[in-house]
């Protein structure tokens, strides 16, 4: 049992090293915020990109499936942005009025899709969702109760994403219909996206604190190794070439990183356009706040799937 008696939330049966949002030291709060920004921005920007496939998917069913996944990711982003609001940030500050260079997502999620290049969406989903699983597993052990409370909810929707990505990958790799086309497009997407996928694991200046305080107890370097062990063999088994072996030395892997790495605020050229696009309506309507259509996640499902 937890010794502290400060809260009666659903997490109260487990002890946490960190307190609620009002109980953190300045350094602890900075670490929690840095961790949440990477999480929320990854999900939000990926959802923005996925949404471009809406009404443009290869089939009606494929279209709905990817739109459904985009909706899931937006929902996850909302859960994480909501935790940043605990610290007094408003939604416009976090999304609609935030300068593009303040976003902390990895460059993988901001890259544009070439017109009709479904293999790109499939490879991107595969690389991202395998990372997402590892990150969520690590966050299940978080010492910050507000994150712990929400991890399970997000994990529940990720299984479908991974199955979706793997099933498509398998079929494109096997090549039904035109084998060369599917296989070639996946290989090109791997060549193009793999370096950007590595930016998912680029640590920020807050990484030592994030790990030390247990916001995410497993360091990104550990997650990257686990990710390489997972994705490299799967892709190689399908007959694709990878730029590194799963057991390559970390320094060798680092050399593949692109110059812009996202997590430090430096992004690729595609980001400015995407940012401009999703903030366009907000600016055009001269908004200063974001209307809320849904109840706060904390009030949304009382008595729902909490442990």
């Amino acid at each position: 049992m937890a010794t502290e008696d400060t809260d009666t939330g659903p997490w109260s049966d487990r002890g946490f090293a960190l307190g609620g949002p009002d109980e953190l030291s300045e350094r602890e709060q900075a670490a929690v915020e840095a961790c949440l920004r990477a999480l929320a921005d990854d999900e939000f920007v990926l959802a923005e990109r996925y949404t471009e496939w809406q009404v443009r998917g290869p089939t009606l069913e494929g279209d709905l499936a990817v739109a459904n996944i985009a909706q899931d990711e937006l929902g996850h982003a909302r859960l994480w942005y909501d935790l940043l609001e605990d610290f007094g940030h408003t939604e416009p500050e976090l999304i609609w009025e935030r300068p593009p260079e303040d976003f902390r997502h990895a460059t993988l999620v901001e890259r544009p899709f070439a017109r009709g290049d479904w293999a790109d969406a499939v490879v991107r989903g595969f690389l991202y969702d395998e990372f997402e699983r590892l990150r969520l597993d690590a966050l299940a052990d978080t010492e910050y109760p507000r994150i712990a409370d929400r991890v399970g909810k997000v994990q529940g929707e990720e299984h479908y994403h991974r199955e979706h990505a793997r099933n498509w990958l398998e079929r494109l790799a096997e090549g039904r219909g035109d084998p060369d086309n599917g296989h070639r497009r996946v290989q090109e997407a791997i060549d193009r996206l793999f370096p950007h996928a590595l930016t998912l694991f680029v640590p920020t200046a807050y990484e030592p604190d994030i790990v030390e305080f247990g916001v995410r107890p497993a360091p990104l370097s550990e997650l990257r190794q686990a990710w390489l062990d997972e994705v490299v063999p799967v892709l190689e088994d399908f007959g694709f070439r990878l730029p590194v072996a799963a057991d390559a030395h970390p320094e060798a892997v680092d050399t593949l990183l692109p110059t812009a790495r996202g997590r430090d605020g430096e992004h690729t050229d595609a980001w400015a356009d995407l940012h401009d696009e999703f903030t366009f309506t907000y600016r055009q309507l001269d908004r200063s706040e974001a209307p809320r259509l849904m109840v706060d996640p904390d009030d949304a499902d009382e008595g729902g799937d909490h442990p």
Binding site: E61, G62, A65, N68, Y160, E163, N167, R171, R176
Partner: peptide, 14 residues
């Protein structure tokens, strides 16, 4: 519409 049963099960859920 799906190429096989596995994909059909995936799409049917959505």
């Amino acid at each position: 519409h799906a190429p096989d049963e596995e994909m059909a099960r995936l799409f049917a859920q959505v």
